[in-house]
Design a protein around this nucleic acid. Structure first.
Lengths: 305, 305
DNA sequence: GCCGAGCCGAAAATATCTTTCATCTGTGAC
DNA sequence: GTCACAGATGAAAGATATTTTCGGCTCGGC
């Protein structure tokens, strides 16, 4: 696209294609050859592309204290067939400028941030978390966990607090593809159930801190009963990994007072859990596909027209 | 005291300002509520913004085999005053795409994808979902919902299935900053509790389809009892919005057999919920900060060394 | 002071966009 | 299967925006 700039530079109305974003430069180049009124128009356009792109010919004429004809003449001089096309180019330029200053949101969320900033920052942070998680995930460990889960007789998932919701999410999805999976948030029930596990079963513990006793305990029991154990944690050196055959590491983003760690750890955990799920669904495709279809079917009547 | 159900139904132009670059997402969100011809127009626009921005109404009508009127109607549905403005937005979008990103891994997840590809694709898709959601979120509606929630006597959140987990996530977090919030997954209990709500209370319904009866019912009851109602849904024209004072739209990504819609809708819902939470935390900072600190404190002893 | 060259804008002419309205198409009731 | 209705659709009229035309006007030179 730099080619366009080169070709149609300072070429006035004779220029072959209109310029995309080299508008400011073109204005400066052509300004000397412009009449006073046209300079006013060109200046307005160069200074505030976004604002001008919102104006009609008449509007811009008034805004610059000139006439429609002058505006059109200026557009022509800048290389466009007419004002309509200049306006389109202006809109494009404005959009580019807008997106250009995206990395302005790297700061923490402050108490007085306007709501739009909050949205932008949170979205950015969570995107970052996803990228970090994907980059840091050990596909070997993940593959091993998938292999174990795909053929497991039964899958138990442990998690409390925010991680409990992730555990439930995983269990829900595995159930949907016909596997026998349970999520346990109650530590006592978790341990009680863990005792039932044996070789060929899979136990998955989800804890960001890696040191949540309520989650480690059932995993330990499962481990000791011969089940294949998986830990999804942000601390690969945490206590939970003692009893884990496979360790899936989640990433941790910086946190602040208004942005508890729970948010990014949850995002990270969910990505890991999704990967695990899709991996298992691939391996069990023969049974997973019809099971998924059946579960959609069953829910259809719950929707209002 | 019963309130009238909103008349402006199925109204795409409910959003105050038009979208800048959230267009692709908006098309996907609104497509289901479009008529056949309008879908053709929307599709053309989404697939080739640059090309379409070069066409006049008549041109685009011919190109899509429809009429000018349909093109204008589509533009309106997408939130623009008319075709002229859609065209400007299109030009902006085209410029952004031109200068911006390289379209990475756009293919769907296949049954035989290696695990590393699964991770990359899932992460990419979820990042995309986050970007779309942030771009499409109406900050006015969000702000209104935040204001209501920040001063609410009590907050009830409804959601079933996958959305139920999101509802719980929100309630958990609000509880942590000292607000009275409950998540209800049981439709009966939800309605029973909704009856208790009155003006000054807030009810939030979370449903991707916008038509989940089990969630709509309690929201309707809350609405009729005078509570401020909020809908978090992927279908801004869905039945649930009848009873919603504020509508927060989540984005929908393409889905495939191995990537159920539940995944991206959950990601999108969580972002919205996080924004809501942080907004409320800002407004109630005086009480939120110490409450957060206290809850961390209380959990500390649950961690093993 | 007078003359001409070229700038400038008002208004006409044209293109484009929007609205209206009659027709058509699909859907559900009987 | 047929009928009637609601909503979708497009043709054409109506409203705006853009482009062109054309005559007045300014400014510099003589």
């Amino acid at each position: 696209m730099t080619r366009d700039v080169k070709e149609s530079f300072g070429s006035g109305p004779g220029g072959p294609p209109p310029a995309p974003a080299a508008l400011a430069a073109k204005v400066r180049t052509l300004a000397p050859s412009m009449t006073r009124s046209m300079q006013r128009v060109a200046e307005a356009v160069a200074n505030d592309p976004a604002g001008c792109s919102a104006l009609t010919v008449t509007g811009l004429a008034e805004h610059t204290g000139t006439s429609e004809a002058t505006v059109v003449r200026t557009a022509r001089l800048l290389g466009y067939p007419g004002y309509r096309d200049l306006r389109l180019a202006l809109a494009g330029l404005a959009a580019q400028q807008q997106s250009g200053r995206a990395p302005a949101i790297t700061t923490d969320i402050a108490v007085d941030d306007p709501i739009a900033d909050v949205v932008a920052k949170l979205a950015y942070d969570e995107q970052q978390t996803l990228a970090d998680t994907a980059a840091g995930l050990d596909t070997g460990q993940l593959g091993a966990a998938v292999s174990a889960a795909a053929v497991a007789r039964r899958i138990d998932v442990y998690g409390v607090g925010a991680s409990g919701l992730v555990a439930q999410d995983l269990a829900q999805k595995l159930l949907r593809i016909g596997l026998i999976a349970h999520a346990h948030s109650d530590p006592h029930l978790a341990v009680t159930n863990a005792v039932q596990l044996r070789a060929g079963d899979v136990a998955i513990a989800i804890t960001h801190s890696g040191s949540t006793g309520d989650v480690i305990e059932p995993l330990r029991v499962a481990f000791e009963h011969g089940a294949t154990t998986v830990a999804i944690t942000g601390r690969p050196d945490g206590a939970v990994t003692q009893y884990a055959d496979h360790i899936l590491t989640t990433s941790t983003a910086r946190e602040s007072e208004l942005r508890p760690a729970a948010m990014s750890s949850r995002t990270s955990q969910l990505l890991v859990v999704d990967c695990l799920f899709v991996g298992v669904a691939q391996r069990t495709y023969e049974t997973a596909a019809p099971a998924l279809a059946a579960s959609y079917e069953a829910l259809a009547h719950r929707h209002r027209r």
